[in-house]
Each structure stands twice: as structure tokens, then as C-alpha cells.
């Protein structure tokens, strides 16, 4: 709510602020949903591209994990834009569902992947108690989402791989998550904030916040 001039000197109570942080307004829900759905469409294209990419990774399939960071953007971006508990998880889940709606080779497992990856990103933000949303936090959230993705994939898709390859896969997934999901999302949010598009969202000041 906007502050009224009359009650300007009455400092808002801490309790009030805390409540605002965790209650979702309609605009928060709709914006994060739209981001989720839009990224879901991109995921879908990204999945189609996976076939192409895998043609290059035939010699050494774990490198495919480097591509995986693309599937983690939704969580980190959603968390950075809405800055509320659950935003990262919800955004990643929506994106995964939309990817599923458009049809992908992951079938229903996209929902599982979305859940797991979203939880990974969520954990990154939760570690800082939803107070900090700078570059290191974004990178951490991306890396944790990558960790979640790596473990999940190793259990679901790469079950038959030997253990050391699974490890390599997980590490590469974390790197990819930090760079593709963490860095790119952070840059995107800054760019968005600069255009004023985020003016009625908690991240409106992202463009002028310090990187670290």
C-alpha cells in the first residue's frame, strides 16, 4: 500500500512489514505466473534444442549437464523478482508444467524435475532468509538448483551410469546452474528494473542495488 501523507510520520510497525513480505498480492502471483509460463515456453524450445546439443555431446555425455542450466532459470528469476518465500519454487513448477503441456520427452517427470530444481533454488534464497538478492545469492541459488538437478537426473535418467560419471555430471550441472541460471537471471532482473517494469513489485530497486 502506498503511504498516506497524513500518516507519514507514523512509522510502520515491524510486524506489518513482515506480514507484507510473506503475503502474496494478486500482482505478485500474476507476474510470477507469467514469468513462469513464458520461461516454460523457452524450456520447451530448450528441450527441442537438447536433441541437437546432444549430437555434440555424444563423445562425452556428462557435458550435457552444462546445457542443463537453462532449465533452472525460472526458479532463480522468479525468486529474484518476487522476493517472497515460495516464489522460486512456484515459478519453476509453473515453467515445468507448461513445458509438459507443450509436450516433451521428459513426460510427467518434468513435474518432478521442476519440483526438485525449484526447491534447490528456493534453498539458496532461504539461506539468506529472503533478505539478500544480490549476485552471490543468485549464483548460489543457481548452483543449488544445479545440484538438485544433477542428483535428480542421476537417479532418474542416468541411473545406469557409473558413479564417477554421475559425480562429474552433478558438478557440471552446478557450474551451469550458477552461470546460466544465476548470472543471466540476475542480469535480466537488473535490466527489467531499469525499464521501470518492476515498479510495483518488491524488486523495483534491483537496478541500483549493489552487486555484492
Amino acid at each position: 500500500m502506498s503511504k498516506s501523507i497524513a500518516s507519514k510520520n507514523a512509522a510502520p510497525s515491524n510486524q506489518n512489514q513482515a506480514a507484507r513480505k510473506s503475503t502474496w498480492r494478486v500482482v505478485d502471483i500474476v507476474v510470477v505466473s507469467v514469468l513462469g509460463v513464458a520461461i516454460g515456453v523457452i524450456f520447451w524450445l530448450w528441450s527441442a534444442g537438447y536433441g541437437l546439443i546432444s549430437a555434440f555431446t555424444v563423445a562425452f555425455p556428462p557435458v550435457g549437464a552444462l546445457y542443463g542450466g537453462g532449465w533452472l532459470i525460472a526458479g532463480v528469476l522468479g525468486g529474484l523478482v518476487i522476493r517472497k518465500p515460495g516464489a522460486a519454487l512456484y515459478c519453476e513448477l509453473i515453467a515445468a508444467s507448461v513445458e509438459g503441456l507443450l509436450g516433451t520427452h521428459f513426460g510427467f517427470t518434468v513435474l518432478l524435475s521442476g519440483l526438485v530444481q525449484g526447491l534447490g533454488a528456493e534453498l539458496g534464497f532461504a539461506l539468506f532468509r529472503y533478505r539478500k538478492f544480490n549476485l552471490p545469492v543468485a549464483l548460489l541459488a543457481g548452483a543449488l538448483a544445479g545440484l538438485a538437478m544433477g542428483i535428480n537426473d542421476s537417479l532418474v535418467w542416468n541411473v545406469a551410469w557409473a558413479m564417477e560419471w554421475k559425480l562429474v555430471y552433478v558438478v557440471l550441472a552446478m557450474i551451469s546452474g550458477a552461470i546460466i541460471a544465476g548470472l543471466v537471471s540476475w542480469l535480466a532482473v537488473r535490466g527489467l528494473a531499469r525499464t521501470g517494469a518492476l515498479s510495483n513489485l518488491p524488486s523495483r530497486g534491483a537496478a541500483i542495488e549493489r552487486a555484492v
Binding site: M1, S2, S199
Partner: peptide, 11 residues
């Protein structure tokens, strides 16, 4: 539906 902007002022 106007009042979601924290920096806006109402009188």
C-alpha cells in the same frame, strides 16, 4: 487498484 506503489503519495 492504484495503491501498490510504496513510493507514491496519497492525500
Amino acid at each position: 487498484v492504484l495503491g501498490d506503489d510504496e513510493d507514491a503519495n496519497e492525500a
